[in-house]
Design a protein around this nucleic acid. Structure first.
Length: 215
DNA sequence: CTCGGGATTGAG
DNA sequence: TCAATCCCGAGC
């Protein structure tokens, strides 16, 4: 009998709190190549993260945290390593991980996965990957550093084979100059990264206004 | 309470 | 190019 379970290192353990308790931009880059895992109903759904976006702090007008500690964004102000899941356009979910070191609030949006099993369906795009893995708002605030909740992230199964590329974030043009920052990260050779958005232009960091000093 | 709009997607 | 569809945050 053929074992059709998605492959995953049996020794894999979830990334710990210390992984997420670092600058959000570092976490966003380091999540590339990691395995996002959802164990549900005795089944494992997982895939390799190939595209992320950083939402860095309360000054970042593209971030939900920029409106203050509202009911929705509250989890972004809480402990790193927890899930932030919200509904967008009334029909799609977006999955983020809370990440920061000294900032007030931060999160990384997971935008695309390479599925371990093609039967999962499409996992390119933040809404589609949530649908494929069965992630919804029930998972909001879930602790990702333990397997107890069924949703967690494991370190890469192999070192990255290529340099990370960066671009402007997608769908946040309302955020003015913040939208131009190169805070979207991806593995350029992955077929699960949108070709159309692949080389979305971003201003060099040096051309952008300096970040305000930390409070 | 109403109102405007969204970190998206899929169809036409 | 456009609409689906419901939640959130702002303002009265």
């Amino acid at each position: 009998m053929i074992d059709r379970r998605p492959r995953l290192d049996h020794e894999a353990v979830p990334l710990g709190r210390e992984f997420y308790a670092r600058p959000t931009l570092d976490v966003a880059r380091d999540l590339l190549g990691c395995q996002l895992v959802h164990d549900v109903d005795g089944q494992r759904r997982c895939g390799r993260i190939v595209e992320t976006e950083a939402y860095v702090d309360i000054d970042d007008l593209a971030s939900h945290a920029s409106k203050g500690r509202t009911a929705r964004a509250d989890v972004m102000y809480g402990a790193p390593g927890h899930a932030y899941v919200y509904l967008i356009y009334g029909m799609h979910h977006c999955f983020n991980v809370v990440a920061r070191d000294t900032e007030l609030a931060g999160a990384v949006l997971i935008r695309a996965l390479e599925p371990d099993d093609a039967a999962l369906g499409r996992t390119d795009g933040p809404g589609r990957l949530c649908r494929a893995l069965g992630i919804d708002r029930r998972h909001n605030r879930l602790d990702l550093t333990t397997t107890a909740g069924g949703l967690w992230i494991a370190p890469p199964l192999a070192p990255l084979a290529e340099p990370i590329e960066a671009s402007a974030r997608i769908g946040v043009d309302y955020a003015g100059e913040w939208a131009a920052r190169p805070w979207r990260f991806f593995l350029p050779s992955s077929a699960w990264v949108s070709a159309r958005q692949r080389r979305r232009p971003a201003l060099p960091e040096a051309r952008l206004p300096t970040l305000p000093p930390e409070a």
